[in-house]
Write a protein that binds this DNA or RNA. Sequence first.
DNA 1: CTACGCCGGTA
DNA 2: TACCGGCGTAG
Length: 365
Amino acid sequence: MIGCHCLPPWGAVFCQQGAIHCSGQVGPEELLPGQKAEDPWGLGSWDEAGDWDPSGLLQSAYIPVPRQRCPPGKAGLDEVMAAAVLTSLSTSPLILGPSSVPFGPAESCCDPWKEALAGPSGSYSSSSNSGDWGWDPPSDQSSPSTPSPPLPPEAAHFLFGDPVLRKRKNSVKVMFKCLWKSCGEVLSTSSRIQKHISTMHLGRRAELDQSDGEEDFYYTELDINVDSLTDGLSSLTPMSPTSSVPPAFPSLDLAVPAPSETTAVPTILSPVVPTTLCHVHSDHAYQGCLTPGHPVGTGHKGPQLSQPTVLKPFVPAIPSGLKPTTGIRKPRGEAKKCRKVYGMENRDMWCTACRWKKACQRFLD
DNA sequence: CTACGCCGGTA
DNA sequence: TACCGGCGTAG
């Protein structure tokens, strides 16, 4: 992985993760000027850096903004920036763990940001963030202009490092975070979050308990282990049986703002769908590459895929890794060929090229 | 493994 | 022009 500025919007989240991680080792002196001065959330309680447990959301209060973006000479973390940071953090808590794994507590604190970016981050990129995932970078992430709604007291306590909670090691705090787009509400109990989703997003009447379980798809459980650092991923990955949301990165734009009642399940897969569709589409180019003069309809597979708008050029599913031995040989065309269309029995209907075992000229690829 | 697409060669 | 050996690939 590379520098933050090169990353797509969601890459910025990762960068923050790196920063988050490092904040564990960063002393107060590392904080940007103004960070303490503003301290709009009473973060000034940072005074026990040594005692600081670098895992968990507690660190969210101390995300050092990358210096490249916010040089010390500048104003620092003003309210807007802090809100933005908190927003992006609150929408992507599950990736906290992995990124912190490769870096041990003994990591140098000289330049945490660089360390996080350029350090032994081979594992950083490959193991922790599923870099292969090809969905669109959620556009929301790039513009964290919508701060999260005010957090409930319990969440605030947790997030901002209630001293009492911080002392409690080996404790796992479970929070429930709304995954609804631009919401990110964090509540302490599943019933609360369900009620929140039901009433706020699904438009159900609060008094009518008509929950059909759909709410489950819209929140995720933050199983935050305050204790273990190396546990990062594993402590976050296991989802409660009640929560159907996969341990996907919540920074994803779920892109299902108005889910239909009919298919609730696919919605949880929606982050993957675009990619899948893309590959599927390109892998089965059968429908897509027919020549206009397509003759008989024998093999016609009915209406073509209505080109979904989500399909974009993307990474073309080039059959890479083909053996370079035979030089330039086109991968086998997937279009209909005369043999396929007419069959061996109607060989006389084939184009001459096909008859001669040459490249079919009727159904060009 | 077979079926297939088709390159390269031959008649 | 007509055909086919044989290679590489997909299933």
